[in-house]
Write a protein that binds this DNA or RNA. Structure first.
Length: 557
RNA sequence: UGUCCCAUGGUGUAAUGGUAACACUCCGGUUUUUGGUAUCGUCAUUCUAGGUUCGAGUCCUAGUGGGACAACCA
């Protein structure tokens, strides 16, 4: 007997259907992006939900491009979406396009007209909007609502052939202008658009609207459960109405169910808003490491596993939510802790001189790559007389809570020797420029000597200056200064952009860095996780800081 | 002046009429050649008021609060 794990409400819906109306083989899901932008962390949740269900029930999951609007959609986005879904580690059963169903949708529309369920309206969009009423006020019928079937057919044919100018006519479903659900007030199902479509070119001059397309696409693909976000809940009535008009009762009837979109703190998760950040130059592009896009997170150094674990870990519900970004950071630390090799780099250097170490000597010491992974092995790091350590790791004097280097006291240099600070040199402004230390020759890490086993409270990372590599390091902070930048009543979210979200510095790294390639992930010992950016050249390596280590010392300070 | 959805620690999600739990965060202890990791622990939760019931976070009613709906967007 296995433990009964708790089910989320989506899984409960499926389990119940499995008991009553559906067979296991009936299950089929889909992820339906519109190819008009890049996928972001919110989509990742939806991807993990749908593809996760596919894995759980061993059911197919289609990747369906909802490409009904040629004005916005592009092949570039199709490619990017496929790349992102694959990168997350999911395989779709069939690559589908709503545009593949244009003919079927058209045939059904003709049927609707013949049944008296649809009519051509020849008013302006303003007039139609006017007659639609408001949420609290019912609509009124269009003067064209009762055109004859013949006239409707004729006009619709003209729309299709491009004989009517854009905007002259639309096809509307004839439902109920008095409905409390505004979507049921004779929704537009076709508009004329004389634009080239990324897949159908200029074949079609009429394009179906979302509501008319989505449910019927689900039906064509025999999707059993069509999961979407809460804002589509009022669309469900229409979804069902359309299905009722065209359904063959021997076939499976798709059902739409809704879950709450998952919001991430300190960022925005809306394609339109993300596009503004790109257009207004706040970030360098859709894959800027500060962006919550899949490609941005990837460039930042997030692993697919960390994103999938994040999405699965937060669950799914129906309430408005704002997930703290620290939850995302936790999941990438958790994953990288197991995977990333430890290396040493100094980002804010101060020089250390080991006064009792020979001038010309360089020792190549063994350093363990990852204590969390026995198979990770060892590498060599050079040690010599002049080193860099972090400025903040030295104080002339400090209380005993400061475990680092101070005058007269000892620290361990990671993978190397125990040193003691004896003296320091300062510039005219009183800044420390050199620290003079002596080392304990018998204290080499791993040498097994008594001196090497001594317990010293502090351990510092360091690099030998002579062998050090200069690297560019890009440090990131939250893109917005407030948790929820886009829910403010009066202020535009752009007013909350953090002006200090990027800091570019030069750091110094141990020679083993030469072995790293773009997208490789490492832990800069004691600092955080970093990944090699694609801007890296043979001249200069560029690193992105993915996330810092937890830092209980920083909190103490 | 409407219809619909939602309400559990700081955050997110469980508990399916029967002891309110898990994760993150926060705080503290232990271990540690990363102030990391691991590990142990502390604090903290059912919006309000009625009702049904032996028993209500769960069911019902009302209230309060939050959200959605008036694109030829998806």
């Amino acid at each position: 007997m296995e433990e009964k794990e708790p089910l989320n409400f989506i899984e409960q819906i499926i389990e119940k259907d499995l008991e009553t109306t559906h067979k296991k083989e009936d299950l089929c899901f889909r992820f339906p992006p519109e190819p008009n932008g890049y996928l972001h962390i919110g989509h990742a949740s939806s991807i993990c939900l749908n593809f996760g269900l596919g894995l759980r029930y061993n059911a197919p999951v289609n990747l369906r491009f909802d490409d009904t609007n040629p004005a916005k959609e592009e092949q570039e986005f199709v490619d990017a979406i496929k790349r992102d879904v694959s990168w997350l580690g999911f395989n779709w059963a069939t690559e589908c396009y709503a545009s593949d169903y244009f003919q079927q949708l058209y045939d059904w529309a003709i049927m609707l007209i013949k049944d008296g369920k649809a009519y051509v309206d020849s008013q302006s969009s303003e007039a139609i909007a006017e007659q639609k009423g408001t949420p609290t006020q019912q609509g009124v019928d269009s003067p064209f609502r009762n055109r004859s079937v013949e006239e409707n057919l004729d006009l619709f044919e003209k729309m299709k052939n491009g004989e009517a100018p854009e905007g002259a006519h639309v096809l509307r479903a004839k439902i109920d202008m008095k409905s409390t659900n505004m979507l049921m007030r004779d929704p537009v199902i076709y508009r004329t658009l004389h634009k080239s479509h990324h897949r159908t070119g200029t074949d079609w001059k009429i394009f179906p609207m979302y509501d008319w397309t989505h449910g019927e696409s689900d039906y064509i693909e025999q999707v059993s459960h069509s999961f979407c976000t809460l804002e589509f809940l009022p669309h469900r009535e229409l979804y069902d109405w359309f299905l009722d008009q065209i359904r063959d009762s021997s076939k499976l009837r798709p059902k739409q169910r809704e879950f709450a979109r998952r919001n991430l703190s300190h960022t925005v998760v809306s394609k339109r808003k993300l596009a503004r950040l790109v257009e207004e130059g706040v970030v360098t592009g859709w894959d800027d490491p500060r962006m919550p896009t899949i490609s941005g997170l990837r460039r930042r150094g997030y692993t697919p596993e960390s994103i999938v674990n994040f999405a699965n870990g937060i669950g799914v519900g129906k309430r408005d939510n704002l997930i703290d970004v620290s939850r995302l950071e936790f999941s990438v630390r958790d994953d990288l802790n197991k995977k990333a090799n430890r290396v040493m780099a100094v980002l804010d250097p101060v020089k250390v001189i080991i006064t009792n170490y020979p001038e010309d000597k360089t020792e190549w010491l063994d350093a363990e790559n990852n204590q969390e992974d026995d198979s990770a092995g060892f590498r060599k790091v050079p040690f010599s007389r002049e080193l860099y350590i972090e400025k903040e790791d030295f104080r002339e004097e400090a209380n005993k809570k400061f475990f680092r280097l101070k005058l007269g006291k000892e620290v361990r240099l990671k993978n190397a020797y125990i040193i003691q600070a004896n003296d320091c040199v300062k510039d005219a402004n009183g800044n420390v420029t050199e620290i003079h230390c002596t080392y304990d020759e018998d204290s080499l890490s791993g040498s097994g000597t008594e001196a090497s086993m001594r317990k010293v409270k502090g351990t510092l990372h360091w690099v030998a200056i002579k062998e050090a590599l200069e690297i560019e390091v890009r440090l990131y902070d939250r893109l917005f200064t407030v948790a929820s930048p886009d829910t403010h009543k009066e202020k535009d979210f752009m007013e909350f952009v953090n002006p200090d979200s990027l800091e570019v510095i030069t750091g110094y790294a141990e020679p083993s860095f030469k072995e790293l390639h773009v997208e490789d992930k490492v832990q800069f010992q004691r600092l955080g996780y970093f990944t090699v950016d694609k801007d890296t050249t043979t001249e200069k390596m560029v690193f992105n800081k993915t996330v810092g280590l937890r830092d209980s010392w920083a909190k103490l300070e």
